[in-house]
């Protein structure tokens, strides 16, 4: 039993890192632009499918970078033409827009790549377990964790030490002042959106190794990622990081006793957090409370 609990705790951490990748992108966009991006799962699917199409030509490793970059370009185009128009309005408008975009993305991927699932396989030396006892730790999952670790570290360094990163953080706190100081807020928001979508595209490529590529693949990881943000606290990237890992572990541990509640448990956690501490575990006061 203890072994089962230990296994599932560790396994939950692995799942959690994946939620973190999605949730950080969502969080970036939400914090600076006030847009709840329901189409994030659609961008994830597009990232995975692009990698599937590109990998026969440029290989798995190059498509791991190229596919998220292309997805980010699509993100920029959509931000410039559609989402930008709704900044400053009630968040409900952008929520409805991205909700519609999510459906359009799903049907577009279906029209281009077909309704049938597609097999996307990472290099075979990655898709093996490290040992017989720890069969659930494959090299691929370790690789995924490493990529997420590097990306998260890179993101925090980027936000702390680069000019653009500092401006994004400043804009999150007080956009009006940042704008008054002569920063091009429109460009800032576009770049920030692109970074968020890049993370979604990367999550898509990584997910393609574990899951089959399907037009609906993003939808199943989107809700847990939102929950991660709410549990961690809107406005805090550290909170999002913590929230993602927390719900991953909680959902993994629940399968030890009540497998059918493994999905429900993350919503229970969200409900408890909202009741006891509406701003989230590490959230700033005032945004959600």
């Amino acid at each position: 039993m203890t072994q089962l609990i230990l296994y599932n705790t560790f396994n939950g951490l692995i799942i959690g890192t994946f939620y973190v990748l999605m949730a950080l992108g969502l969080s970036l966009i939400l914090n600076l632009s006030g847009v709840i991006n329901f189409a994030h799962g659609g961008f994830l699917a597009v990232g995975g499918y692009l990698a599937y199409t590109l990998s026969p030509y440029i290989g798995f490793w190059a498509s791991l970078i190229a596919a998220p970059l292309l997805t980010a370009c699509i993100g920029i185009a959509i931000e410039r033409t559609l989402i930008r128009r709704l900044y400053g309005r009630d968040p409900l408008y952008s929520l409805l827009l991205t909700f519609g975009l999510a459906f359009i993305f799903e049907d577009m991927t279906r029209a281009i790549w077909g309704a049938q699932g597609l097999p996307f396989t990472p290099p075979s030396f990655l898709t093996q377990p490290i040992s017989l006892d720890f069969f659930f730790i494959t090299y691929y999952r370790l690789f995924m964790m490493a990529v997420v670790g590097v990306v998260v570290l890179g993101l925090f360094l980027f936000l702390r030490y680069t000019r653009l990163g500092v401006r994004i953080r400043a804009g999150t706190l007080d956009l009006e002042t940042v704008s008054a100081l002569g920063v091009n807020v429109r460009a800032l928001r576009t770049m920030n959106f692109a970074v968020g979508i890049f993370l979604a595209g990367l999550a898509g490529v990584l997910a393609g190794g574990n899951l089959s590529l399907e037009p609906t693949m993003g939808a199943n990881v989107l809700m847990p990622s939102f929950v991660a943000i709410i549990v961690g606290g809107v406005g805090s990237l550290h909170g999002t990081l913590f929230g993602g890992l927390l719900i991953g572990v909680a959902s993994g541990l629940t399968t030890v006793w009540f497998p059918s509640a493994s999905e429900a448990v993350i919503y229970v956690i969200m409900a408890v957090v909202l009741l006891v501490r509406p701003r989230g575990l590490m959230g700033e006061e005032g945004i959600m409370s």
């Binding site: 089962l4 396994n11 574990n210 939808a219 199943n220 990881v221 993994g252 399968t255």
Partner: peptide, 11 residues
């Protein structure tokens, strides 16, 4: 719609 089956397979 469960995306990850590792905990089920562990069991």
């Amino acid at each position: 719609g469960t995306p990850d089956y590792s905990s089920y397979l562990i069991k």
